[in-house]
């Protein structure tokens, strides 16, 4: 009778355990779904390390500025050249866009009485509701970045228009890329 060493035994046991626990995940091609728990501790692929919002960040949502109507009291022409553009389904700030934020911060420093209303926008390819949320996160990302550059929180406000205020109504990739933006508006009052 062959002696079974401890090593062999433990190897066999481990192998069995591995085989037992790597079961069949639902085949993505089949249309049968299932239920699984959302572990909110798992990092999401969408998270940009420089822009984590919500309870985890120190930056709360800005209260609305008193007596300001975003429709009539914001001038988007003054800083229009510093409109920040985003990648598809993303609210992270591309490194190529950071120079614009430096310029916006400098302008705010040079114009100490002025406040910004940053509007967030998307292309049309998500749902209406989700795009409103994505536009919001783009505007908040700008705000967070500017606060990181030293601008006081109470000088920057945000609003999202989702896909509802496109810069380009075309249905092509160029139009889509022009719509994925956050616009720094100057509050005129």
């Amino acid at each position: 009778m062959k002696k079974i060493t401890l090593l062999t035994l433990s190897f066999t046991l481990s192998l069995s355990l591995i085989l037992l626990t790597t079961g069949c995940a639902p085949d993505a091609k089949s249309h049968t779904g299932g239920a699984e728990s959302l572990d909110s501790g798992l990092p999401s692929e969408n998270i940009d390390a420089t822009s984590i919002l919500g309870a985890e960040s120190g930056i709360a949502q800005a209260a609305r500025p008193d007596g300001i109507n975003p429709e009539t009291d914001v001038d988007y022409s003054i800083l229009s050249t510093e409109t920040v553009y985003f990648n598809y389904d993303s609210f992270s700030i591309r490194s190529s866009e950071r120079a614009k934020l430096e310029k916006i911060a400098k302008w705010l420093t040079d114009n100490s009485g002025k406040r910004l209303m940053v509007s967030g926008h998307t292309d049309t390819r998500g749902t209406l509701e989700y795009n409103r949320g994505l536009g919001e996160r783009r505007a908040l990302a700008i705000r967070e970045y500017l606060v990181g550059l030293g601008i006081a929180q109470d000088r920057i406000f945000t609003i999202s228009y989702g896909e509802e205020r496109p810069a380009d109504t075309g249905d092509n990739e160029n139009a889509h890329s022009l719509n994925r933006r956050a616009m720094p508006g100057v509050i005129t009052k």
Binding site: K29, S30, G33, A35, L38
Partner: peptide, 15 residues
């Protein structure tokens, strides 16, 4: 409570 995923095919399910 805790959110529970409803698994549907494809990469984007909404509304």
């Amino acid at each position: 409570g805790e959110p529970i995923r409803i698994t549907t095919p494809g990469t984007y399910s909404a509304e």
